[in-house]
Design a protein around this nucleic acid. Structure first.
Length: 479
RNA sequence: AGCGGGGUAGAGGAGAGGUACCUCGGGAGGCUCAUAACCUCCAGACCCCGGUUCGAUUCCGGGCCCCGCAACCA
């Protein structure tokens, strides 16, 4: 058998100024499903996630709470890492941008970009709000004032920043983005291409330390720290041990296939800025970046003031880990925005997991336990359903689930049509054969479940191999 | 303004150039292996106007309406 290409897969790193958001849960579950799928297909996989911990907003939040910056980010890193258990994630590394090795990598990529002539110093003039201690953008202004501090006059301030020569990489980016595989779905690639063709401005990549010190020090200049984006984007390679160019970096980034997952608001950062940084540092660009949509609730953005926020922890508490994964994978569109409410999620859970999959396994395994002499012969490894593989290859999680649940529905129909529970009383051997076939097919379903719902996969397989009806896989919700 | 996405049964979603599918809900029946589950049947939909086509809800053009993005925001 030929050696399969190594696969690298990463989420974006959530910024730790709030508890884990359902949108990140979606992303990390999608990534985990792909990681499990690729492993199942025999690829060696490196799956990365972590936390983005520098920058003004975090410094501000920590100050507000009266905590040290480090204590503040430590708290959140722990919170996010807890998702591993809650969502049954199989990542290989959880990187924090405050890790020493990451900071060293960020400095090294800075040096390489600088050595390539792509970093220069320029003074930047803008309106500065003393209240927020930050520069305001034109579009932020409300009647010429800071929206947070309407009674303070913004002052005009000038500071020196380092800039990254993004403009230099226009042609390289156009070439990269002309490859269909570079971005999924297609419309984001088109947008990025148009955006780059429209011309790129260089971007500020540092902050003066006396105003904002919570960042990675700029190599060779004690007065500046890196702007958080520049530092954070480096994580995708620092997690692989870069700047050590051998080892995992070579295996997964250089010689393997790289896939990033991100929200649709990230196109500019991931597909343009980060790729330009890689070009500048002489590193291969990301092979594919997949962008998911957003999750709204009740037709509106989730927001604390509307009270429609759905947190991943609450979902896990109500439905369990597997069911949370199921809902996010099957009932959220892989590319477009989707809408979830508790009402709808309850419905999905009851219809498809309690009444569907859970009930099917219960009825089949009860018959098996009662009528079969022992476990069926362990099904030999059959080929996976091609349509199922194709769906996952195209990040179509919904489509992959649809194929599984079609099989569930077909099995329910077959039980009604063949009535093995009745038949076994008239013709024992023939009835047993029918039941054994059903058990076999339940096993096949559970195999497909592996990337989607790892716990159910194990429980169903065990039930089949022990010829025992399992406890309710998905308990009915309290009325 | 511009760029992008979209408008499918009562609700929420999928889909495709030629009997329009799924979940919930409504109506009628069946079964009893199962988590009061499961199966069958019925009622019910492709925003409007043109064009291409033997044929479009699906492709193209226009209109109306909704939703994103719009540069440092992590």
């Amino acid at each position: 058998m030929e050696a399969k290409k190594a696969k690298y897969i990463t989420t974006t790193l959530p910024y730790v100024n709030a508890d884990p958001h359902i949108g990140f849960a979606l992303e990390v579950i999608q990534a985990d499903t792909l990681a499990r799928y690729y492993r199942l297909m025999g690829h060696e996989v490196f799956f990365n996630t972590g936390t983005d911990e520098h920058g003004q907003k975090i410094a501000q939040k920590a100050d507000e709470k009266g905590e040290s910056r480090q204590a503040y980010v430590d708290h959140y890193a722990t919170e996010f890492n807890r998702l591993k258990e809650a969502l049954n994630l199989s990542y290989n590394n959880f990187i924090r941008t405050t890790d020493d090795s990451h900071k060293a990598a960020a400095q090294e990529i800075w040096r390489r970009c600088e050595a390539n002539g792509d970093i220069y110093k320029k003074s930047f003039k803008g309106l500065y709000c003393v209240g927020d201690e930050m520069f305001l953008r034109e579009s932020d202004l409300v009647e010429g004032r800071c929206p947070n501090h309407p009674n303070m006059e913004p002052i005009e301030l000038e500071e020196e920043n380092y800039f990254f020569r993004l403009s230099k990489y226009q042609d390289a980016l156009i070439e990269l983005l002309s490859k269909e595989s570079s971005v999924t779905p297609e419309w984001h690639r088109q947008w990025a291409l148009e955006f780059v063709k429209g011309g790129l401005e260089d971007l500020s990549i540092s902050r003066q330390k006396d105003r904002m010190d919570w960042g990675v020090p700029v190599p060779g200049d004690d007065n500046h720290v890196m702007y958080v984006w520049f530092d954070a984007l480096t994580n995708y390679i620092s997690t692989l041990g870069w700047p050590n160019e051998a080892g995992d970096f070579k295996k997964f980034w250089v010689e393997g296939e790289t896939l990033q997952l991100a929200g649709k608001d990230q196109v500019r950062f991931q597909s343009i800025i980060f790729q330009a940084m890689l070009f500048s540092a002489g590193i291969k660009p990301t092979d594919t970046i997949y962008y998911h949509g957003f999750i709204n609730s009740g037709g509106q953005k989730m927001s604390k003031s509307l009270g429609n926020v759905i947190s991943p922890q609450e979902m896990v508490a109500r439905y369990g880990t597997d069911a949370t994964r199921y809902i996010l994978l099957r009932h959220v569109h892989p590319f477009d925005d989707s809408d979830l409410t508790w009402e709808k999620m309850d419905e999905y859970y009851t219809a498809n997991l309690v009444n569907g999959l859970g009930n099917l396994v219960a009825r089949v395994m009860k018959m098996a336990e009662t009528h079969l002499d022992g476990p069926i012969e362990k099904p030999t490894v059959a080929d996976f359903d091609l349509a199922f593989l194709l769906a996952l290859d195209q990040y179509n999680f919904q489509g992959a689930c649809d194929i599984i649940w079609k099989k569930v529905g077909d099995l329910d129909e077959r039980i009604t049509a063949t009535e093995p529970f009745k038949f076994v009383k008239e013709d024992k051997e023939a009835g047993k054969k029918l039941i054994a076939e059903l058990v076999h097919d339940v096993y096949i379903v559970s195999r497909l479940l592996f990337p989607i719902m790892p716990e159910a996969n194990i429980k169903i397989k065990e039930a089949v191999l022990q010829n025992k009806k399992p406890d309710n896989l998905f308990p009915r919700l309290e009325a």
